[in-house]
């Protein structure tokens, strides 16, 4: 499905286009997304510094907490501290508190520059998804690796020694990024109706901060709130990848975790498509 009225044509095109060309286009977009963020080296260094400082603050807070209540949420102390540093490493990658394409997309909708994106022979959602995957790849390397290494130097972290858990973790991170993208895409598209996406972004920012498990692991919360928090899409962003790396999800548990992430990704991307086709029918007169 593409934009509203053009859907049948797009389907025909899709069938007759060499797949390779499509892959190539979005690969270039993703590479561009990566390099755009790679351009700003000082900003990256400043970000790494911030992540590391926050990592230390949160690690000591967690240590105090776990000292009082060992095995809180099913984690031992070393696992809890590992969880903190994973949170810092994935904060930008999974864009738990925003900071990806959404500000730019909202700005383009507001100014009418979105018109340019619409006459391109490319799909709007795939275009932004590819760009965001490129960004996430950069943030994982540029903003994720160093804080995690520094954390591992300063604390005794429960990191796996064999490559397989790491691979499982990276898969969960990739799926988390897609879920995160789909959420932010929906939030950004609201600008077509609201003209100012700031409020919606703040809500997603708050929701992301809490429901991803960034403040505290979601396994700590008892009762209905805990159940709800673990069922919402945001748990795909940090809670699930962290549990995969910490070995809490293996075998069928791992399959279940992936299925949960894939399910939310599909549902949210699908919703994004529906909203997109409604929105592009509204592309009206911004900027004449």
């Amino acid at each position: 499905m593409r934009f509203g009225a053009s859907a049948p044509d797009a389907d025909i095109q899709r069938r007759f286009l060499p797949k390779e060309a499509v892959v190539r286009l979005y690969a270039v977009v993703a590479a561009g997304g990566f390099r755009r963020y790679a351009t700003y080296r000082v900003a990256t260094a400043a970000g790494v510094f911030t992540n590391t400082v926050f990592g230390f603050i949160m690690a000591y807070t967690y240590i105090a907490l776990w000292d009082e209540r060992p095995q809180l949420g099913g984690y031992d102390l070393s696992q809890a501290v590992t969880y903190v540093w994973l949170g810092q490493a994935l904060l930008m990658t999974c864009a738990m508190m925003g900071g990806g394409f959404e500000d730019e997309l909202i700005e383009r909708i507001r100014t009418g520059d979105i018109a340019i994106d619409l006459y391109r022979p490319a799909d709007l959602q795939l275009w932004w998804l590819a760009g965001d995957l490129g960004r996430a790849a950069f943030h994982l390397l540029g903003r994720g690796v160093v804080p995690l290494l520094l954390g591992a130097l300063a604390f005794d972290l429960a990191l796996p020694a064999s490559p397989l858990p790491w691979l499982a973790f990276l898969t969960a991170v990739l799926l988390g990024v897609v879920v995160s993208f789909a959420l932010r895409y929906l939030a950004a598209l609201s600008a077509f109706w609201l003209m100012d996406g700031a409020g919606v972004l703040q809500i997603t920012w708050l929701a992301g901060l809490f429901f991803s498990g960034m403040l505290l692991p979601l396994t700590l919360f008892p009762g209905a709130l805990g159940e709800l928090a673990r069922l919402l899409p945001w748990s795909s962003l940090l809670q699930i990848p962290a549990d995969v790396l910490l070995g809490k999800r293996t075998g069928w548990g791992l399959v279940h975790a992936y299925a949960f992430q894939v399910g939310w990704a599909a549902a949210l991307l699908g919703a994004g498509r529906l909203v997109q086709s409604a929105a592009t029918r509204r592309v009206v007169v911004q900027g004449g």
Binding site: A10, G32, I116
Partner: peptide
């Protein structure tokens, strides 16, 4: 409007006040 994507391959558009170029990257990209 019915075949937007097919048409896009045959037309070029320049909006003076907007840009299709990647803002942060070298022109060649």
């Amino acid at each position: 409007s019915r075949e937007r994507t097919r048409l896009a391959r045959r037309i070029g558009v320049v909006f003076g006040q907007r840009t299709t170029l990647w803002w942060d990257l070298p022109l060649i990209d």
